[in-house]
């Protein structure tokens, strides 16, 4: 899987789009250890799983501390939120 995304059930409650580029990530665990709110948990290789995307407050610390340019955190697009609206 190229992009690590939060599980579909969790994604609805999250305010921000978090994704980890699996092809670039080298499992250094910096994002997991230094996330102030604990969004990530560790998988069996030491790489991040986006377990609690709803906790993200868009501080961008994981993005700027990622040595591999693998993480992106963006506010969710408006069009997605109103997708099922009237």
């Amino acid at each position: 899987m190229a992009e690590e995304k939060p599980a579909a059930s969790l994604e609805k409650s999250a305010k921000y789009d978090i994704s980890v580029n699996r092809a670039w990530c080298k499992n250094c665990r910096i994002c997991i250890s230094f996330c102030p709110t604990g969004v990530y948990t560790e998988n069996e290789l030491g790489g991040p799983i986006i377990s609690f995307p709803e906790k993200c407050n868009n501080c961008q610390l994981c993005v700027i501390r990622c040595p591999d340019f693998a993480i992106t955190v963006k506010p969710k697009e408006e069009s997605k939120r109103t997708h099922n609206g009237p």
């Binding site: 092809a23 670039w24 080298k26 499992n27 250094c28 665990r29 910096i30 700027i64 501390r65 990622c66 040595p67 591999d68 340019f69």
Partner: peptide
């Protein structure tokens, strides 16, 4: 050229990004 050749956890990527 990506992913880069720097080792896992090497801080060079952080500086380059900054």
């Amino acid at each position: 050229k990506f992913p880069h050749i720097w080792c896992p956890g090497c801080g060079h990527g952080i500086i380059l990004q900054a």
